[in-house]
Design a protein around this nucleic acid. Sequence first.
DNA 1: GTCAGTGCAAAAGATTTGCATGCGA
DNA 2: TCGCATGCAAATCTTTTGCACTGAC
Lengths: 160, 160
Amino acid sequence: MSVRARMRRFEEALRERSLKSTSQRDDIAQVFFGAEGHLSIEELYTAVRKVNPRVGYATVYRTLKLLKECGLAAERHFDDGQARYEAVEEEAQHHDHIICERCGKIVEFASQELERLQERIGRFLGFVVSRHRMELYGICAECREGRHGHPRREHGVHRV
Amino acid sequence: MSVRARMRRFEEALRERSLKSTSQRDDIAQVFFGAEGHLSIEELYTAVRKVNPRVGYATVYRTLKLLKECGLAAERHFDDGQARYEAVEEEAQHHDHIICERCGKIVEFASQELERLQERIGRFLGFVVSRHRMELYGICAECREGRHGHPRREHGVHRV
DNA sequence: GTCAGTGCAAAAGATTTGCATGCGA
DNA sequence: TCGCATGCAAATCTTTTGCACTGAC
């Protein structure tokens, strides 16, 4: 989905909720959708300030919470203590993450086999599973070959 | 491993590091090992104060950090914002968690199949995986049957 | 014009740290 | 005795909130 399409959906969501469209909300959403990746609040705040210095920290928090409620952003908690956000794709496909411990690259993947296995494990333990979270940590190929320092952004979900 | 055996290993670890054995460290470790489960700092602090009111919050943090460094405690970050700690078993076996979203019960499980699959996924994406984290969230059998409110502590790792 | 939205600063919650004092080795 | 360990409070860090002011509708 393009940035423009996401912006349209955002404006639409605002109208549905009778919320106002403001320059801050627009700028934050624009930068968020354009960034593609897993941004922390701080990173997003810094990026937004370059476009529009009249934006406060609190508004970034409030707008991300709003995007989350609209289903346009997903909140992730990795092991580094602060929340990160990613734009949600149209098909809203579930996926998991693998994270390079050297360069910080985050790659998304989806595994049908994993989904099935998780379902099976839950059932075995008497649970009805509603969601899960899975993260793999390791070293990526680039870093092992000494090419780290330039974390290549790998977009999209890899089906494995 | 018994509480007593864990305490012995703790005292041993202190000696190895030339650290002092104090009543606070002993009391905190004793309560921690005796509690069995996934304790937050707050829960541990409250429990320790009942035994020894001369213990400060900071010491609980410092002692848990120490236990972690000694390999006797593991830190977990679930989705509730604060860290939880669990005592590490002798065999130091890796396991994952399934959490009931209604009663908060946390059940540990280990799956060879899951380990293999994670290894395979990592390799496919060009990573050498060093660790992973996996949590399932859902509703447990007791809660579905309306028997919630008394989260039964299920100890030990379930092999699935 | 009205009231939701914003910026700022202060509050809140989790965790860490500085420092004077206490106590184990 | 000597210096690590502790308690306390203050400092950090991330996130939320109160409040007066601004601006979208």
